[in-house]
């Protein structure tokens, strides 16, 4: 894909130059208890890119996202979102937590969850109005879930739950989307639906970052990678950074050599 390459190349330049990049992280360290989950990680996500955060289980990929957004406290490190503190750029960012992080038995319908994404446009002490419902329905349509608006969220399949989460993020109409394992435990149809929405976002000039598990789809879905195993291993365009060498360093002995052969690496 030539367009992906173009963005990746411009991304490389932005890495160095742009102070207003969607995400710039310097020396991010987050610790649960005594052991750091993320240690002194640098990252720089250029505008309009699609980046996969890759690493073994427990490598701190999710923690990196949460630390960057201040959802978990940082031990140290500096984070800039579009060149500003996150507090001052909140409305330009949409964060999709892991699906399993919430209790889907919560008394809410699908539409109620999507409406949460419109929180910023409702106003203090006010409630959601009819126009918010219309917007929420639009977002459900984009993820193919408009027939499920009145459905109790506990009755959805994993893939449907993930689409609802994505619809909530779409409702935020952000410039920068951070998704934590959006493809974990979803069916093939949902995976295709999510990928197509994410590529749509990218084609609109928005920036996407996903914590991603499936190495076999990295090259197909993303144009950049950030390899993390507590520390940052490598970051850059798929073509130059998603290499057997870097993967070996990231996963250590946990990634069999035969497995690496199956990937379409650069």
């Amino acid at each position: 894909m030539s367009s992906a390459k173009l963005v990746a190349e411009s991304g490389k330049i932005l890495d160095v130059a742009s102070k207003d990049a969607p995400l710039t992280v310097r020396g991010l360290t987050v610790s649960y208890g005594n052991k750091p989950a993320v240690f002194s990680v640098d990252a720089s996500i250029p505008a309009g890119s699609m980046t996969a955060i890759i690493g073994p289980n427990g490598a701190g990929k999710s923690t990196f996202l949460k630390g960057a957004l201040g959802v978990v406290p940082r031990l140290s490190g500096e984070v800039r979102i579009f060149g500003k503190l996150f507090e001052d750029a909140r409305d330009r960012v949409a964060y999709v937590p892991q699906r399993a992080s919430v209790d889907w038995d919560f008394p809410a319908r699908v539409i109620d969850v999507v409406l949460m994404g419109l929180y910023g446009s409702v106003g203090l002490f006010r409630l959601w109005q009819a126009r918010h419902r219309e917007q929420a329905m639009e977002c459900l349509k984009r993820v193919g879930m408009s027939d499920f608006a009145e459905r109790q969220i506990g009755q959805l399949s994993g893939g449907q739950q993930q689409r609802v989460f994505l619809a909530r993020a779409l409702a935020q109409n952000a410039e920068f989307y951070l998704l934590d394992e959006p493809f974990a435990g979803v069916d093939a149809a949902t995976e295709r639906a999510i990928v197509s929405v994410l590529k749509e976002l990218k084609s609109e000039g928005r920036t996407v970052v996903c914590v991603h598990h499936d190495l076999s789809t990295v090259a197909e879905y993303f144009d950049r990678v950030l390899l993390i195993n507590v520390r940052r291993i490598a970051e850059g365009p798929v073509e130059t950074t998603f290499t057997a060498e870097n993967l070996q360093e990231t996963y250590g002995g946990r990634l069999a050599a035969t497995h690496i052969d199956e990937l379409h690496l650069a």
Partner: peptide
Amino acid sequence: FDAAFAGAIG
């Protein structure tokens, strides 16, 4: 419902 999301949106 979702404390992490709530924190992220302010």
